[in-house]
Simulated assay, not measured.
Amino acid sequence: MAVVRVRQHVNPLSERYQAPVAMPDWSEAFANPQQPLHIDIGCGKGVFALHMAQLQPEWNFLGLEIRKPVVESAQKRQQEAGLSNLHFMYCNVNISLRALLESWGDQNPLQQVSIQFPDPWFKKRHQKRRVLQPELVATLAEFLPPGGRVVVQSDVEEVAVDMCDRLSEHPHFLPQGDRWLPASPFPAQTDRERVTLEQGLPVYRAIFTRS
Rank of each mutant, 00 (worst) to 15 (best):
S184Y: 03
S184L: 08
V195E: 13
A188D: 10
W180Y: 13
P175L: 14
W180R: 09
P187E: 11
Q176W: 15
H170S: 00
G200R: 06
L181P: 06
L174T: 07
P175R: 15
Q176G: 10
D191V: 08
L197V: 10
H170I: 02
W180H: 10
D191A: 12
P182E: 14
Q189R: 08
R166H: 07
P171N: 07
L174D: 04
S184P: 00
F173V: 00
Q189D: 11
R166N: 07
L174Q: 11
H170F: 05
H170L: 03
R166E: 07
D178R: 13
G200V: 09
G200Y: 10
F186E: 14
V195H: 07
H170M: 04
P175N: 14
L197I: 13
T196Y: 01
Q189E: 12
P185K: 07
P182Y: 05
Q199L: 15
R194K: 14
Q176T: 12
H172W: 05
F186V: 09
R179Q: 08
R179N: 06
V195P: 01
E193V: 02
A183E: 12
L201G: 02
W180V: 10
F173M: 00
P185T: 13
D165R: 11
D191S: 08
E193Y: 10
A188G: 07
P185Y: 03
H172M: 03
T196I: 00
R179P: 00
R192T: 03
C164E: 12
D191G: 07
L174P: 01
E169D: 13
R166F: 00
S168Y: 00
E198N: 15
G200E: 07
L167T: 02
W180I: 06
F186Y: 13
P182Q: 13
L201P: 04
L201S: 11
Q176N: 12
F186D: 10
R194Q: 09
Q199I: 02
P182I: 09
R179F: 10
A183C: 09
W180L: 11
P187C: 14
E198A: 15
W180D: 03
V195C: 00
H172A: 08
G177A: 12
R194C: 03
C164P: 04
R179T: 08
R166L: 02
A183Q: 15
R166A: 13
G200I: 09
P187D: 14
Q199K: 15
F173I: 00
S168H: 07
T196Q: 13
Q176L: 15
H170Y: 06
E193F: 09
D191P: 00
Q189H: 08
C164I: 02
D178V: 03
L201Y: 06
R166K: 14
P187V: 15
L197P: 05
Q199H: 14
D165M: 02
D178A: 15
C164F: 02
D165W: 03
D165C: 03
D178L: 05
W180N: 13
P171C: 05
G200M: 11
L201R: 10
L167G: 01
L181I: 10
R192H: 09
P182G: 11
C164D: 04
T196S: 06
V195G: 04
D178Y: 02
Q199C: 13
L197Y: 01
G200N: 14
A188C: 04
F186T: 10
R179V: 11
Q199D: 12
D191L: 07
Q176V: 15
A183H: 14
L201A: 12
H172N: 05
E169I: 00
E193D: 06
P187Q: 15
V195T: 11
E198V: 04
